[in-house]
Design a protein around this nucleic acid. Sequence first.
DNA 1: GTAACTGCAAACACTTTGCGAAGCA
DNA 2: TGCTTCGCAAAGTGTTTGCAGTTAC
Lengths: 136, 136
Amino acid sequence: MQVRNTQQRKLVMDLMRGNLSHPTADEIYALARRKEPRISRGTVYRNLHFLVEAGEIARISVPGSPDHFDSCLAEHHHLHCRRCGRLLDVPGVVFSLEQAVAASLARSGFVIEGVGVIFKGLCPDCSGAASRSCEE
Amino acid sequence: MQVRNTQQRKLVMDLMRGNLSHPTADEIYALARRKEPRISRGTVYRNLHFLVEAGEIARISVPGSPDHFDSCLAEHHHLHCRRCGRLLDVPGVVFSLEQAVAASLARSGFVIEGVGVIFKGLCPDCSGAASRSCEE
DNA sequence: GTAACTGCAAACACTTTGCGAAGCA
DNA sequence: TGCTTCGCAAAGTGTTTGCAGTTAC
């Protein structure tokens, strides 16, 4: 199966690479339409999947919200803000415990292919706003 | 708001309590219909949410598959089998690393309300089957 | 009696897919 | 030219919701 470098695929790729946050498929679709108004949602989804399969980007599944995509392939934790929905990187984390658990599981016959860790809570912006407005 | 103990709510509660695995809403619905064929999907969803809000059960969001529900409230990790889709408990894990990270994040102004860890891979049954049949 | 709850069905959000047309190699 | 990819729209999946009728308290 011969892979083709279409305008649309290049566009999605560029938008991902130029994006340091963790856009959803729909956010990429919105950005893509600014440059290429005729691009379709299906094409964006297909190309995001293509890039994930090709190992160019990572898919981050977030409970209760659509999937996000990450152009940073280095393994890292995320924080999902319950209030604004933003997905933020947790920097500088060592994975010794998850790795230890994975090793122990492997000894029991599990094949561990990955570990997903997601912190849930409020980001600094939202926790500040929350205390200011006394809500919740 | 006065809470009522309806037949349907009791049934969902009992099915969850008698269930050591991690059924999805649809699995609970199927079980419920065996005892109460007129129960509706909406009622099962509403009651599962009710029980989650009431702190009676936990909701486990699994990337790429419907939500699972867990009658075990003790914090623990899970393994999601890519092959059979089963969700399994990871027993006897200490959470020191996640807790350390959470503490460090808290110092930066994040409000951490929870940590979700999900291992992805193959359970012993499936990893054995996979190597036997040489697939993938 | 009354308001929380139910069953039903339609709506919902996100994602995938079938199809005929378009365009890259 | 041929086969991958596109745009479009419809279907799929899991979940929520509006409503009129029911039922627990």
